[in-house]
Amino acid sequence: MTKIGYARVSTTDQDCSLQEAALLKAGCEVIRSEKRSGISTKGRDELETVLSFLRPGDTLVVTKIDRLARSLGDLMGIVERLQAKGVALQATDQNVDTSNAAGKAFLQMLGVFAEFETNLRKERQLEGIAKAKVAGIYKGRKPSIDAAKVREMQAEGIGATAIAKALGIGRASVYRMISG
């Protein structure tokens, strides 16, 4: 019956210390932290470590459900893994108890709102980029491939594979530059 804590922040300028303090206060014996986006579970090594470490009777503790997952699909996938192992889920800042129907429903609602918030943030970002483009402020990132060099090498009779290798780019990128 061990409490294992998991803390996550999205960006490098954020800090897990407040979450870690709350997890310690909640009685966690082990706490794993990482700085990774919560939009996907891919690449979240500390989360995977925690999920594989948990044993029947343990409790996974987070401060908020959105620290665990930002999409309902990922959240439900994690919850299913926990249930299959006989592990409970607790959120210190939210009344989550996965041992009863009401707690499971509340957990799903929190997951829906976390995903909704992520989608709203994406929409606002895209709107901001569109406005900046219209105003001439945003031009996108600078090209990482020198199209002139690709065309020059192609004109010299060098094949796409050799160009890609010489410039350290993908062959498909070479074909895009040549045809575009």
Rank of each mutant, 00 (worst) to 15 (best):
V96I: 14
V134P: 01
C16D: 13
G73M: 15
T161Q: 07
V61W: 05
L167F: 03
E48G: 09
V61S: 10
R171M: 06
L126E: 11
I39M: 15
V134G: 00
L72Q: 08
T11M: 14
V62L: 09
S33G: 06
L126Y: 04
V96Y: 03
L60S: 09
Q83H: 13
L167W: 01
E156C: 05
T11S: 15
D66S: 09
M177G: 04
E34D: 03
D66N: 06
R55I: 07
A148L: 09
D58T: 03
D93W: 08
S52C: 15
Q94L: 05
D74N: 05
G43D: 09
S52Q: 14
A166L: 09
K35F: 07
K131A: 08
A114W: 00
S10D: 10
R121V: 12
M1F: 13
S144L: 07
A105N: 12
V79T: 08
S179G: 04
G168F: 06
R44E: 08
L75Y: 03
I178R: 00
V150P: 00
T11C: 14
L18T: 15
V9E: 14
T41H: 12
C16V: 14
R141H: 00
P56G: 09
S17Y: 15
S33E: 11
R121Y: 11
A162Q: 12
A22R: 13
D58R: 06
K139R: 06
K42E: 15
R32C: 14
K104D: 14
L68V: 02
S37C: 04
I137C: 02
M177T: 09
V30Q: 11
S10T: 10
A91P: 06
I178K: 02
C28D: 10
T92D: 12
G170R: 05
P143W: 01
L54F: 05
G136Q: 00
A7T: 12
L72I: 03
Y138T: 00
R67E: 12
G43V: 02
R67D: 11
